[in-house]
Design a protein around this nucleic acid. Structure first.
Lengths: 325, 325
DNA sequence: CTGAAAGCGCTAACAG
DNA sequence: CTGTTAGCGCTTTCAG
């Protein structure tokens, strides 16, 4: 079943080698022959078998990508941007979820390597425990860490400057006269959680008030509840991401607390729903398109053999002031 | 570079055929030999080359999936569920976005077929114009339409019963005494838009009031604005999906309209942010996990050669009543 | 610039 | 149950 390059070559009256060269757009084929091959391919409705090509050429034109949870709109947007960038280069994206479990992540990485991806883009779900999977991958193919990173891993990374973002938020709130700030974030299992927590602490100084859970709306709701139970509210609630912030906002609204009059609330990421919240959420926008573009660019550099190409790029985020803070 | 099955076979003292059989878990290998092969593979740190296996066996254990926009949390959740299901079966997911453009969709389908995916799961972005790409795919591999479908295409589909969902919403609102309803939906370019519009019209009867745009929050905001400009608000605004509804809610809030006191608002899908809205959004929940599971199950049926396996499964959605309606 | 030939690493017939 | 053999369809030397 299926027409092969032999059929095309035969019809064009050339050898398979010439057909191969013409089809893959290599130079060094007489224009006349190239035309004949292309015409034959068109007439026969030839569909190259990329699996065979991959076996021989040892390159699959496929990039693996491991994300914690594609259902998270923040990661989904990142995946979408990466996919769009790759498409321009005729490459495909093999996607895997780690579900925030380093063991699953490791299995997924192995599966992608087995499929001989040319490179890997990874959002490592854990600051420390993703190290093993990452190292295993890096030993075989170029790897770019995206958004999150593993502590002390020397490879490439591109993401946002979390500490700078936090610092902007805190300065903004302090500028509005909010003095008592509390941070509602995630336990620092991933690098962004850690960096945002560090950023908050550094910006606020000693005695920073901190509540840690995970990056979920449920935790946001729970944290809101806990703050209300304490009696007096702080001036501002600085959240580790937008999802937490939306959870906090919904809990505050349920209890009749007015935002920003009674307390200010901020998020981080600027997911699409941030501006739809009531009140609209003040947050820090990540330049995702730019981050994805940079990642794919770095990939290109690695793939074209620039050996010492490994580096870290932290892109500055932008404070987006809306009604909530 | 790399140890091959030959090395494993040599070390185990058997032929490559036996090694292959042992490694792929086929029965018909003496237990003793199987052990020797597995041990040799472990000792040599053997990593099978699935590309070579694919070339020979003509199966890649890879499923292609084309979605309109992975950034949409509704589709993202569907992708996540499918991915989770596939993982259990040792299969991987090759992902592509159509960006709602039938031309892009067609290119993407072709790219996936070139990569010799075993089957395709497709959320066709257009009721009519996705037909060509779908037919091209179906001619080569099993195809399952997910969520959306192409008019008049005879193949398999699994999704939600949109008309039933709409009917539930409308009956619920009528039951609350809301008589003047307006539908804010998407122009029927995809099958769900069409079915939800049809469902609304059927449930409301003649003279149904309808505003059509697209499935975006921006359209929701714009539609809200337009309704406010008309002077008198309807009793209920039935939205084609949650994203539109969240847009409507934000616009109404901005103008000081109270929900549900002044007007009720409903959505469709129950995305994670629906319950965080102020007020929390009444909507129709799609059983996405179930839809994904059914799709993967159907895929299995097609792949194991059940020829006449093509069929349509419409899963009943569930009304989720919250504060907004 | 072109062709012949040699595999990439594996699985599937087919004999034993 | 096991081994031998023949490719899967393509790219890539290597000669010409």
């Amino acid at each position: 079943m299926g027409v092969t390059i032999h059929d095309v070559a035969a019809r064009a009256g050339v050898s398979v080698a010439t057909a191969s060269r013409a089809l893959s757009g290599q130079r060094g084929v007489r224009a006349e022959n190239r035309e004949k091959v292309l015409a034959a391919a068109r007439e026969l409705d030839y569909e190259p078998n990329v699996v065979a090509a991959s076996l021989r050429s040892r390159t699959t034109h496929t990039i693996g990508m491991v994300v914690p949870r594609i259902g998270n709109p923040f990661f989904a947007t990142l995946v979408e941007s990466v996919e769009k960038q790759l498409q321009d280069g005729q490459r495909s994206l093999l996607l895997a979820n780690s579900h925030y479990e380093p063991e699953t992540e490791q299995r997924q990485v192995r599966a992608l390597l087995d499929r001989r991806v040319d490179a890997l883009i990874m959002i490592p779900c854990h600051r420390e425990r993703s190290g093993e999977a990452l190292a295993a991958a890096a030993a075989r193919v170029p790897v770019i860490q995206l958004d999150l990173r593993v502590d002390g891993f020397a490879g490439s990374w591109v993401g946002v400057d979390n500490e700078a973002g936090m610092s902007q938020v805190v300065r903004h709130l302090l500028g509005l006269g909010a003095n008592r700030l509390v941070f509602v974030g995630s336990r620092p299992t991933d690098s962004s959680a850690q960096a945002r927590l560090d950023g908050f602490r550094r910006a606020v100084g000693d005695g920073a008030d901190v509540l840690l859970g995970d990056f979920s709306k449920e935790w946001g709701q729970q944290a809101g509840e806990r703050l209300l139970a304490q009696g007096s509210l702080p001036d501002g609630i600085v959240c580790g991401n937008d999802t937490i912030a939306l959870g906090v906002l919904s809990e505050l609204a349920r209890r009749g607390v007015r935002v920003p009059e009674d307390v200010r609330v901020t998020g981080f990421d600027d997911i699409p729903y941030a501006e739809l919240a009531q009140p609209a959420l003040t947050t820090v926008r990540q330049p995702q398109e730019q981050i994805a573009a940079e990642a794919v660019r770095m990939l290109g550099a690695h793939l074209t053999g620039a050996e010492g190409a490994s580096r870290s790029v932290a892109i500055a985020p932008e404070l987006v002031v809306r009604a909530s803070g």
